[in-house]
Nucleic acid binder design. Structure first.
Length: 149
DNA sequence: GCCAACGTTGGC
DNA sequence: GCCAACGTTGGC
């Protein structure tokens, strides 16, 4: 089993939205590395740290897991949508997404707190210039965060 | 709003 | 294949 951190802007989709919906297609990822993580590495049951980004209080907001393995992202085929990709076809999809389902909403663990734990120094989101919206998390780091939540 | 960092694009 | 220009991310 693998562990991941997935960023979402709460103004777009927050942990409360996931608590309401239970499960959500993680569509709209348009970065190849992040796509490859979903398409090639994620398995049902993989654990996910749900992270709020680009907001007044960035940080980990809840626990989730992969509910449905990767399939073609429908939004790439919608010419009216903001995620349309003219070079993608149903025969040759370019973008994929998994479904993510809620495990539980937690307290918010702010980015500043995360930075304060020396044990988490190698967490990908703390590295300089990291902008990937989906990053792998070491099992030990995940266990550490779980204990602090 | 600023700005550092990084990914993508496209001319050559 | 190189690399400059441009766009985006995301914390502050």
């Amino acid at each position: 089993m693998r562990y991941w951190l997935m960023k979402s802007e709460p103004s777009e989709y927050s942990i409360d939205d996931l608590a309401r919906d239970g499960s959500v297609p993680w569509f709209g990822v348009r970065n190849y590395q992040a796509r490859n993580f979903m398409r090639d590495q994620m398995r049902v049951g993989d654990k996910v740290l749900f992270y709020h980004s680009s907001c007044p209080e960035p940080g980990i907001a809840g626990l989730a897991e992969v509910g449905v393995p990767a399939y073609p992202d429908a939004s790439q085929f919608d010419p009216q949508g903001e995620y349309f990709d003219a070079k993608a076809t149903p025969e040759n999809p370019r973008w994929f997404n998994v479904d993510v389902r809620l495990v539980k909403k937690t307290r918010l663990m702010p980015l500043a707190e995360i930075r304060g734990y020396p044990e988490l120094a190698n967490l990908r989101i703390l590295q300089r210039g990291n902008r990937l919206s989906i990053t792998p998390v070491d099992p030990a780091d995940y266990a550490f965060i779980l204990k602090k939540l």
